[in-house]
Amino acid sequence: MRVSQWAHGTFGQRVPQIRQGVAEALSVALENARDAQKVAGTDHLHPFGFTLMSRKFEALAEAFEDVGDVRIVKPGGSPHELVVLDGKLLFPFRYAKDRSVNVMSARIGDGRASALVQALFNRFGPEPRMRQLALHDLPPHAVPVAEALGDLPEDTQLVLIAYACNAHAGLLDAWWGEAELLDRNGSLRWHHCEEIPVSQEAAVPARGDSAAGFDQGVLPAPELNSRRGAARLTAPVSEATPIRGRARPEAADGA
Rank of each mutant, 00 (worst) to 15 (best):
E178M: 10
V70P: 12
R248T: 13
G213P: 00
D110H: 11
E81H: 13
D253R: 01
A169T: 15
I72Y: 05
Q200K: 09
A251H: 05
E250W: 13
P220I: 05
L219T: 10
L45Y: 01
R246K: 09
L160W: 10
E65R: 15
R55S: 11
A174K: 09
V204K: 04
D69F: 06
L138H: 08
L224G: 04
V159G: 00
A29N: 09
G12L: 00
V73A: 02
V22L: 12
V15L: 03
P197E: 08
A134K: 13
G49E: 07
A113T: 08
R232P: 13
Q118V: 06
T51W: 02
P126H: 09
H136W: 11
L188K: 03
A202H: 01
A148T: 06
A174Q: 10
V198P: 09
A29G: 03
D183A: 06
H141A: 00
Y95Q: 02
P140H: 10
Q132L: 03
L172T: 12
L188S: 07
G12W: 05
V237C: 13
R71A: 15
D155L: 03
L135N: 07
L45H: 00
D69Q: 13
F121S: 07
E81A: 13
P126T: 02
E201I: 05
A240C: 15
P128F: 14
E154I: 04
A169E: 15
D253F: 00
G21E: 13
R131W: 12
Y95N: 02
E147A: 13
A162I: 04
A169N: 15
R129V: 05
P79M: 14
G68A: 05
R34E: 05
E62N: 14
L45Q: 03
